[in-house]
């Protein structure tokens, strides 16, 4: 009886409009994260989403001081962050992780200083750090949907160039691939994905959406195309599993999805027929 009552409770919960939006939003975010993550980890930009998430505090700080809605400030900030990092990388030839660390730490520091001028924004910081999928509005869903379409079109139309560029930059240039354009376009798109998803997932967990499904997909795939599709699929699947687990056990949604991603990654590691990395 208790199980049946629990089942009925979860079904009722899943029928509520805010749960529909949360489920759909998490699937869109999971799919986008997996799709973009597949290239992100191969290009060793895993730290990028983490750094952007943390740096977003600066964008929020500026928004709060100017009296603007922080969720609108994050997107232009994300693009500026991406272009800034791409510029620094090209100009300095420093290590990507070191450079990201500089940008991330300094943005975080300046962001916290700016926010310290407004004591009334403390609750906002907690919201920013942990996100809230359940608070997703229809407008957020529309934005996420449009972003997903943009990612699919971009990766679809430039797939061969992206693969060759990931594999060997000089060979890609010799074939006429405009490396700096492609690299900047990818990094801007990734920033927008992260920027849009911060509201739902929070800055602390956003990088998991980009990194974990892609790593699990790498363990399960042999061809490049397979890898991209599995990565996006696992991103969406872990979002559904995480949301259901969160509804059943009344757990926070974002962390539940990341735990589902971890479980999938561990299963991929243990899977007997996993494609071993041929090193």
């Amino acid at each position: 009886m208790a199980i049946q009552a629990e089942f009925t409770r979860v079904i009722d919960l899943l029928q509520l409009p805010f749960m529909h939006r949360a489920l759909m939003g998490s699937v869109l975010t999971g799919f986008m994260g997996g799709l973009m993550g597949s290239f992100t980890i191969l290009r060793q930009l895993s730290f990028f989403s983490d750094a952007l998430g943390e740096s977003a505090l600066l964008g929020i700080g500026v928004g709060v001081l100017l009296g603007l809605d922080p969720s609108w400030v994050i997107l232009p900030f994300a693009v500026l962050f991406a272009l800034g990092v791409a510029y620094f990388l090209e100009r300095t030839h420093l290590w990507t992780d070191a450079l990201l660390n500089i940008v991330c730490s300094s943005s975080l520091a300046i962001g916290i200083i700016l926010l310290s001028f407004r004591d009334d924004y403390k609750g906002g910081i907690t919201h920013l750090l942990f996100g809230d999928i359940l608070a997703m509005r229809t407008t957020d869903l529309v934005f996420s949907g449009m972003m997903l379409v943009a990612c699919v079109i971009f990766i679809g139309l430039t797939l061969r160039s992206q693969i060759l560029l990931t594999l060997h930059e000089s060979m890609a240039i010799a074939r006429g691939v405009s490396v700096s354009t492609q690299r900047t376009a990818f990094i801007v798109l990734l920033s927008l994905v992260v920027g849009i998803s911060i509201k739902a997932i929070g800055v602390l967990l956003i990088s998991a959406f980009v990194v974990i499904p892609a790593c699990a997909a790498r363990l399960l795939s042999r061809t490049f195309v397979q890898y991209i599709l599995i990565s996006a699929g696992l991103g969406a699947l872990s979002a559904v599993i995480g949301m259901i687990v969160s509804a059943v056990f009344d757990l926070p949604s974002g962390p539940s999805i990341v735990t589902a991603q971890l479980a999938i990654f561990l299963l991929a590691m243990l899977a007997p027929n996993r494609r071993k990395l041929a090193l």
Binding site: L164, F224, A278
Partner: peptide
């Protein structure tokens, strides 16, 4: 990077492609 998952057939196929905007 030898961790990149790509088969011989996929790699040789990259030599055939024109590498502009195109459907996959």
């Amino acid at each position: 990077d030898r961790r990149i998952p790509i088969t011989v057939r996929e790699f040789v196929g990259l030599g055939w492609d024109r590498l502009g905007l195109q459907l996959p």
